[in-house]
Amino acid sequence: MSEIAAPRSSTRSRSLKGGGRNRSGQTNFELYSWLFMRLSGLALVVLVLGHLFVNLMLGGGITALDFAFVAGKWANPLWQVWDLLMLWLAMLHGTNGMRTIINDYAEKDQTRFWLKSLLITASIVIVVLGTLVIFTFDPCLDPSSTLSVCK
């Protein structure tokens, strides 16, 4: 039986050891990135499917979503941490995936550079914005809020 190497598993970047750089002087960035896609993917299965189940399947589903619903959820630290993890992992995973795709299709160095700059900029903006939203959320903006913190 002939052994055919799996794609993207070049022998150059096989070793996790090697002090950041391996024998051929390259970093192991692509290996870590490959591993990260798989580990974050596993976590995202729980985080994203849980998010969809709670928001779309429980209670009134989509019809029940409004400011009060969000206030109710983020009053619970569990959902704050959940959403924060989901935001960071999904954005890192998605950005890294988009980076692979740009590398695959954009052939000119210039095009790659600009597409990646745009990608990184957009991702940083979204991650910072989403993080701020979770940490600075104020349920009492809603005068009719029934949450005890607003009384």
């Binding site: 409004d66 969000v70 935001l87 795709i101 914005l129 989403g130 701020l132 939203v133 104020d138």
Partner: peptide, 23 residues
Amino acid sequence: TGVGIFFFLLVHVLDTALVRVSP
């Protein structure tokens, strides 16, 4: 699907950010 979900997520974080504007 990966690309589709990524672009959805960009818009999704933007619309969720409206909770900081006003209810």
